[in-house]
């Protein structure tokens, strides 16, 4: 009956892999067993005044482990960064509707910054040719993991310090990167531009959206996005935490 749970998981590793970006590996066999690519887990901070769960995408699913990669942006993630291996953290079951890997010839995985992590498990799940185009402000991360998953990796940085100077869409165009299916996770402006680009080249794209969440498990209707529907308004507010976070780029109403 109770299909979901929150457990105290043991932290196996919690290591800074780029400035302000951490990889956390959790021992959580029961959660790993029920997880799929593009889903997220809720991490619960211990501080009593931080009430809400922090949704973090699943970066890699092991037999008994879950790997998460998170950026330190505020109170909760700062607390997480202070944990040592051997300590525990409260983590929920895998939540949401993730990526649906398609059987295509060439998949293009486009990631921006802290949106790159879920692309690693996605790449691992796909058998065909895969190209990852990942963009960062300054310092790239997860390049080796994507390569290990069989992807050819292209890197863009805003600063030009590593790889191409510019954004991922400019890089795709400059390199003439093409494929028959796109997948993406990153800032909304990037997803919006990519959805428009994919529409112009008539190629489908799955995008993973981000929104402020309350409960993080579908009860509160806090984290909605506009999805095209045959209604009076032409859209319906769908839950990012349940119906998403992954949607088709063509069904999202990109108004902001």
């Amino acid at each position: 009956m109770c299909k979901k749970t929150v457990i105290e998981a043991k932290i196996i590793q919690n290591q800074e892999i780029a400035q302000g970006v951490y990889r956390m590996v959790l021992s959580a066999p029961e959660i790993a067993a029920g997880a799929s690519c593009g889903q997220f887990v809720n991490l619960y901070p211990k501080a009593k005044h931080t009430l809400l769960p922090r949704p973090i995408s699943i970066c890699e699913i092991g037999e008994d482990t879950l790997t998460l990669v998170y950026g330190v942006v505020g109170e909760g993630t700062r607390e997480f960064a202070g944990y040592n291996a051997g300590e525990t953290i409260r983590v929920s079951s895998a939540i949401g509707t993730g990526f649906k890997p398609q059987k295509t010839k060439t998949a293009v995985l486009v990631g921006g910054g802290i949106g790159v992590p879920p692309l690693v498990e996605l790449a691992k799940q796909m058998s065909g040719e895969k190209i990852a185009v990942i963009g960062f402000r300054d310092e790239p991360f997860l390049k080796e993991e994507l390569e290990k998953a069989g992807a050819k990796v292209y890197i863009a940085t805003d600063s030009g310090k590593t790889g191409f100077k510019g954004n991922v869409i400019e890089l795709i165009q400059e390199q003439g990167i093409s494929g028959d299916y796109f997948y993406s996770c990153g800032p909304k402006v990037m997803l919006k531009a990519l959805a428009a680009y994919c529409e112009s080249i008539n190629t489908p794209v799955q995008v993973s959206l981000e929104e402020r969440m309350g409960c993080g498990y579908g009860a509160c209707v806090g984290c909605v996005c506009k999805i095209k529907e045959n209604t009076e308004t032409g859209y319906e507010h769908k839950k990012v935490c349940k119906d998403g976070p992954v949607f088709l780029g063509s069904e999202v109403v990109w108004d902001e």
């Binding site: 309350g214 509160c220 209707v221 806090g222």
Partner: peptide, 23 residues
């Protein structure tokens, strides 16, 4: 009811704000 635009949720010290708008 369609409810309000997002963000609808904000965390505060020991509390939270919501403006779901009764979707």
């Amino acid at each position: 009811w369609d409810g309000n635009p997002t963000p609808r949720i904000a965390e505060t010290y020991g509390g939270m704000l919501n403006a779901v708008g009764l979707q």
